[in-house]
Design a protein around this nucleic acid. Structure first.
Lengths: 254, 254
DNA sequence: TTTACACCTTGACGCAACGGCAAGGTCAAG
DNA sequence: CTTGACCTTGCCGTTGCGTCAAGGTGTAAA
């Protein structure tokens, strides 16, 4: 039996474009071409196409498939092993993604259901979102899920008055930080006041306070661009300055 | 604080090309452009970019992200829910893939370790491969994993002599099928001989025989292009013809 | 024999999300 | 004034095809 391109496409369940593409990249060439240039496929091509479609169904890229089907001496098992590793990796990554997405959803739902004042809700939601969005992964990695969850819970349970105090503290912190940077000394009084305000601010949400965690967080402000960006908005170098101030504050000289 | 494109790229940990692209597609436009056309970003853009990067890290496409960040009234939770469904689907699909790949690997390894004669090994390997490759999923869905595994085991345990008889039977089947199609009658003697040969051929690998399964398999030859292609190589319409012959053979008139 | 119509060809653009390069303009420092 | 770092727009390449478009073929009916 010989097949024109459409016949083969039909019995194999693919498009003619696909067959032309496979010809183009040298993956599956027709047995011959007739006088008018029509592609003519034979039995061997049918066999080869099914092999190709099998590997394709396994999610392999056409380049790898070409290596396997074009030289039978090629180690197909090794290729499959490698492919399996890639798949396992992808699944692990997917699992992490799903976990994060689910966490984000429940965080959002939690915030929405707990708020009463519209504006308050908006801000609070934004804040939780921001925290989880920006820093969620790193902080969870560094401090563990429990701390983060307790921290979020503490924020959920804040009263509106507490929340406004929390926001005010943050504002004072940023203002003091700017003032301290004018002065330029991370050990100076303004800088130490800023560090103290930062601790005060942390106390609103952190379940417990320790100097080590405080110092670690300060370092993270510098290392992680998404953290540092928050403070860089105040002034260039603000993340580093705040870290230095906090390190002095907690008596952590490295 | 204002940022040029490289500054923002640096603190956010992305490339300048990415920022230009986001501008191009209207996902993140700079606050303004200076007299020379330089993009200038402000604090709001930093915030928005982090949001974008968060959703991107969740594996969402930029189009969906644009919908979320560009109108805050948009239901972000619903979008995340939908995204979660997609992720779960993708994972289920990945699981199936991994299962099939692992099955293929062990089938290959099994064949290799069991064979002694080089040529025999090559053929046998090819055959198992072919069966699993072409029909594995559908057959497994239709008949269940147990039957397929038992069938493979039966094939593994074939002696070389048995195997050659198996191949000879297949050859006789195809020849008889062609002869029967010349005659053109699915109820005729040649066609019925072909159907009988097909049963004989099945007996080599199927753990047990039933008329219903035989008829079902015959129908699958027609429905699944990858099955039909195998018989279409003999002659156009061969799958349908064989199905009809088998249906007559098992007394299954629909 | 003409004509209709299905089929074939190559060529090219488009998709997602950028990477990378080139040609040319701009800015700050020495 | 020059140098070098930085900016701009524009375009090609990636994967695996889908989807026209313009034009040549094959075959069967009128």
């Amino acid at each position: 039996m010989e097949y024109t391109i459409q016949k083969l496409a039909h019995i194999a369940g693919v498009s003619t474009r696909t067959l032309r593409y496979y010809d183009e990249i040298g993956l599956l060439e027709p047995a011959r071409k007739n006088s008018a240039g029509y592609r003519i496929y034979g039995g061997r091509e049918v066999d080869k196409l099914q092999q190709i479609l099998f590997y394709r169904a396994l999610g392999m890229d056409l380049g790898s498939i070409k290596e396997i089907v074009n030289n039978p001496s090629f180690d197909g098992t090794a290729a499959l092993q490698a492919h399996r590793c890639q798949l396992l990796e992808r699944r692990a990554q997917l699992d992490r993604l799903i976990h994060t997405v689910e966490g984000t959803i429940s965080a959002k739902e939690g915030t929405i259901s707990m708020s009463d004042s519209e504006k308050f809700e908006g801000f609070k939601k934004e804040l939780i979102e921001d925290n989880e969005q920006r820093y969620g992964k790193e902080v969870r990695e560094a401090y563990g899920d429990d701390i983060v969850d307790q921290s979020n819970a503490k924020m959920f349970n804040m009263s509106e008055a507490q929340y406004e105090e929390f926001m005010a503290t943050e504002k004072r912190l940023l203002a003091k930080l700017e003032e301290a940077m004018e002065a330029g000394n991370a050990s100076g009084p303004a800088a130490q006041e800023a560090a103290a305000l930062h601790k005060e601010w942390l106390d609103f949400t952190w379940p417990s306070y320790s100097k080590e965690a405080h110092a670690g967080l300060a370092q993270m402000y510098v290392d992680d661009p998404r953290f540092s960006a928050y403070y860089e908005k105040v002034r260039s170098g603000a993340a580093k300055f705040l870290r230095d101030a906090i390190h002095v504050y907690v008596g952590f000289h490295q």
